[in-house]
Design a protein around this nucleic acid. Structure first.
Length: 336
DNA sequence: TTACAAATAT
DNA sequence: AATATTTGTA
């Protein structure tokens, strides 16, 4: 079956030769539209500074025309290939998810290079001093096999005899990606947190439903563990008297060198069902033990109202080995 | 037939 | 361990 025949467009336009019959429809379209001078400058803030401050709204610095152009360009290139995905598929899901949807930014997916050779040994820590080649890694991003074919790089990787046989590289769930995942899952009730929906809301190019399903499975296992953990050793009656409402908001404090024998795979819990007051989700780091390569994803700073987000990690300049401790959430329990 | 979740497989 | 793929259901 065809998993995705979509996402396949010829070229992004450009050479639109001869189809028109000497007409000039463009002029017609433009008739009546406001001229550039009639429009408010894009750099102008929509909310007066004083009003903004009164409501504690963080005002982003106004953009310059250059910024706008750049953003516009990147948007277009992003849309060029996946002309659909979440953006054009109206969500029937009733939610006030606008902050997610409209604050999205093109995020690309990181991928593992290859698995040609299995390496058995794991490197503990490798520090590379001297010149940093932070982002010169050999990872590639998956571009829906389309970008790929437009740039035939069938070097040594693997032949794609029919270009259709190309298998996607393994997806790497970077902290950024995971954060997005958790944010989405948290904002959907558990009822709605199903692969497809999650995938759509994450709006990450190239991310498949299978990718999400797999991650979700793991994530659920993780949540289940956490739940069990809090009640372990206590009889049900004991739990009734537990002073701390054994909620499953979690604090994650990673031991640095010690490699906590226990496992703390996904330190990014977040109980479901954020309610109105909607506290910020403590969405954070991954406790991976990668001795591998990794890098950043396109930007992605605030998925939701940045306002609450007090901590933000600068992963690009972070050492992978050490994990920091993170805050917790104060939100309510899950709601069914 | 699709999408999900769980079970396997790599 | 982390992802992918298969399998069984709804």
């Amino acid at each position: 079956m065809s998993e995705s025949d979509d996402l396949r467009h010829g070229r992004g336009g450009g050479s639109g030769d001869g189809e028109l019959d000497g007409e000039d429809p463009v002029a017609e379209w433009e008739f009546g539209l406001p001229s550039c001078d009639d429009l408010a400058p894009l750099s102008q803030a929509l909310i007066p500074p004083d009003l903004a401050s009164a409501f504690s709204i963080a005002l982003r610095p106004s953009r310059t025309a250059g910024d706008v152009n750049r953003a516009s360009r990147s948007t277009l290139t992003g849309l060029r290939r996946c002309g659909s995905t979440a953006s054009s598929q109206g969500f029937s899901t009733n939610d006030n998810f606008k902050s997610f949807v409209d604050d999205r930014q093109s995020m690309e997916v990181e991928v593992e290079e290859e698995e040609k050779e299995e390496e058995e040994e794991e490197e503990e820590e490798e520090e590379e001093d001297g010149a940093d080649k932070s982002d010169s890694r050999k990872s590639r991003r998956i571009e829906t096999a389309e970008e790929v074919d437009s740039t035939p790089r069938m070097d040594d990787s693997q032949e794609d005899p029919s270009e259709k046989t190309s298998k996607r590289p393994r997806l790497v769930w970077t902290p950024q990606l995971h954060k997005r995942f958790v944010d989405v899952v948290a904002h959907l009730g558990i009822k709605n947190a199903v692969p497809k929906t999650i995938m759509q809301l994450m709006n990450v190019e190239g991310l498949t439903r299978e990718n999400v399903a797999s991650h979700l499975q793991k994530y659920r296992v993780y949540l289940r563990r956490m739940q069990g953990m809090s009640s372990e050793g206590l009889s049900s009656s004991d739990q009734l008297f537990t002073s701390t409402p054994v909620v499953h908001s979690l604090n994650y404090v990673a031991g640095s060198t010690g490699h906590g024998d226990g496992q703390m795979p996904m330190p990014t819990p977040v109980p479901y069902g954020a309610q109105p007051p909607m506290m910020p989700m403590p969405v954070y780091a991954m406790g991976h033990g990668y001795g591998h390569m990794r890098m950043q994803i396109g930007d992605l700073s605030g998925f939701e109202s940045n306002q609450y987000v007090t901590q933000q990690r600068d992963w690009s300049s972070n050492k992978y080995g050490s994990v920091a401790s993170y805050q917790q959430t104060a939100s309510n329990e899950k709601r069914f």
